[in-house]
Design a protein around this nucleic acid. Structure first.
Lengths: 142, 142
DNA sequence: CACGACCATTGAATAATTCAACGATTGGTT
DNA sequence: AACCAATCGTTGAATTATTCAATGGTCGTG
């Protein structure tokens, strides 16, 4: 708190602030796309978290909500056939949430729409875009 | 749709996909900070949109929700003293939402917590962090 | 000045989240 | 082996948040 001023000079912090600002730009469009598929943000984020099957409690952790809310969300997604409950071999208490083929398909469809970069990114020169891409790749490879 | 493959090669699209992936990393922490202040995401985003006073309908547009939901959200934020309704000189139908001093203070406090960059950004070399910062600055200046 | 359109609000219906309690299962302790 | 506390997902009730339809007040245009 006392070193807010010094933090502001930290390039990582500054970069992150800009990062969030850019992200804020696209939030409305993100909501539109989700709404087109009849999904609320938590439902979409649940879907998006299922790169591999996950215990329901783990989804609750990410979404920061009650387990019972995940039960409810899962019911909705299951009704649409996007998701299914599987048994966990190693622990019969847990149920694993997994994408169905349809769920996988829809998720990719949504992702494709969200992948369209916002104006701020698109306005960069192609060289800058490549530099940015490489930088972000490096960040994720840590 | 037919050119999904070519889009994948577009550096801006690739960069944006990575961008979103990094952002996903911090979502849980963001929810935690908001929860510490008793705010739901829509309430926080409303607060965050008030760089200058905004018509309530404009907030509804950004949040992609009904105007009546904004009335409700505003009531909550007003109860806490974060926000106030002002008259719009030029159009007596509209009410402008504006941050109170307290609201300004709290918003900065929250922002300071969210400004802490995630590991992926922090793990970059200081030189890369600076490059990233400069790139994002340039993107926003378009 | 009459008309349709827009703004924020209200009230009712609905959706989504939280909270407390439960049955089933697990792992650890004795 | 037999308890015991803890965890998992679900249920039901209470609460909170969002949508939908209708309203009073205001605006701009014809």
């Amino acid at each position: 708190m006392a070193d807010t001023a010094t933090n502001r000079r930290d390039p990582a912090t500054e970069a992150w602030e800009l990062f969030m600002e850019i992200f804020g730009e696209v939030r409305p469009r993100m909501l539109d796309v989700q709404a087109d598929y009849g999904l609320k943000p938590p439902q979409f984020f649940a879907l998006n978290a299922l790169d591999e099957p996950q215990p329901m409690s783990h989804i609750a952790d990410m979404l920061r909500c009650d387990r019972s809310a995940v039960t409810w969300i899962t019911d909705r997604l299951e009704e649409r056939g996007y998701v299914e409950r599987r048994a966990d071999e190693s622990d019969r208490r847990v149920k694993l949430l997994a994408l169905t083929d349809e769920g996988q398909r829809v998720r990719e469809e949504i992702r494709a729409q969200l992948a369209l970069p916002p104006d701020s990114i698109a306005s960069l020169s192609r060289a800058d875009q490549r530099t940015l891409r490489d930088l972000l790749r490096k960040a994720l490879e840590r």
